[in-house]
């Protein structure tokens, strides 16, 4: 974008934030789960990476392979089932043999249900943390027949969580209308109603260049946080979403006995000097009880 502004200036990221920040958020979640394992079980953290075979997971796997050891966790292996795998018992057996007590999951398709269900049925002694798009949906509990208990995934919204004053009315209205908690795709609402419409009104015309100039310099609240478009090192607009404390962070949610509750950010600090972030309604992360035997 910075290199060819005139070609790409009409393109804006609405949701979610880019894959670099998705990985950063996942690492924050791994950090929380790893600290919980150390505190509660007093054992070293051994992490397995399980990612569906898809182009979007490749860069995340590479980043995870490089970062997990730096976080003080032992990386025990990488498994890549098909995104539509209907049986992952082979992978689960190998993961259990590896001694992993934390599984970094990167799933967007049906394998997320298969993996969670079979891991729960087999009581694999490890907590699942990462991205599991199916686990973001209300239907996950029924789809896994309750075996997806304690699965921890990134999500945009959760019942009872207030990132700011816009969150609660948005989530409640969405649930009333569609019967489930909004996922990240629902942020199209914010991109249009809170991003584009006020910019057109401020421009007072439909002149695209005037609207772009306004959008590039706005900062505004959306139900998931605050939107501010980034600039690169040279100060050129990237039209990418700013991630971090005070802006967009997303949530870490966990299935706890049939309810999808939010467990992150809870006293989270992006860096030692960064402000602590906690959203209203957070609860502590729970490890599967069968890990404690």
């Amino acid at each position: 974008m910075g290199e060819n502004y005139s070609r790409y200036k009409y393109w804006f990221r609405g949701a979610p934030f880019n894959d670099r920040y998705l990985v950063a958020t996942s690492f924050a979640h791994l950090g929380l789960a790893g600290a919980t394992i150390k505190n509660e079980l007093n054992v070293p953290v051994k992490c397995a990476i399980v990612a569906e075979k898809a182009a979007w997971t490749e860069a995340m796997i590479k980043a995870a392979e490089a970062t997990i050891p730096k976080m003080g966790f032992e990386l025990v292996g990488v498994w890549q089932p098909s995104d539509k795998a209907t049986d992952v018992t082979a992978e689960l057996s190998a993961i259990q043999k590896s001694g992993a007590n934390m599984i970094f999951t990167i799933f967007s398709a049906s394998v997320g249900i298969t993996f969670a269900r079979q891991a729960g049925e087999l009581k694999i002694p490890a907590v699942q943390v990462g991205i599991n798009v199916e686990a973001q949906k209300d239907g996950f509990w029924e789809a896994t027949k309750g075996m997806g208990n304690y699965v921890f995934t990134m999500n945009s919204y959760a019942r009872g969580i207030e990132v700011n004053e816009l969150t609660k009315p948005f989530v409640e209205t969405y649930i009333k209308r569609f019967g489930e908690v909004p996922t990240y795709t629902a942020d199209t609402y914010s991109a249009i109603n809170l991003g584009l419409v006020p910019s057109i009104e401020a421009a007072g015309s439909l002149d695209a260049d005037k609207i772009v100039a306004i959008m590039e310099n706005r900062e505004y609240l959306v139900p998931g946080g605050k939107v501010k478009l980034e600039r690169d090192k040279e100060g050129r607009p990237t039209h990418d979403l700013t991630w971090g404390p005070g802006y967009l962070t997303s949530l870490g949610v966990q299935w706890q006995d049939g309810k999808l509750v939010a467990v992150w950010p809870n006293k989270w600090k992006a860096s030692p000097t960064a402000p602590e972030v906690t959203y209203k309604g957070m609860v502590p992360l729970k490890l599967p009880p069968w890990m404690k035997k």
Partner: peptide, 16 residues
Amino acid sequence: EALVVFMIPKGAFLKG
């Protein structure tokens, strides 16, 4: 298929 999944964990998707 079973052999592929067990012998090549990173290539489990290759079974088909």
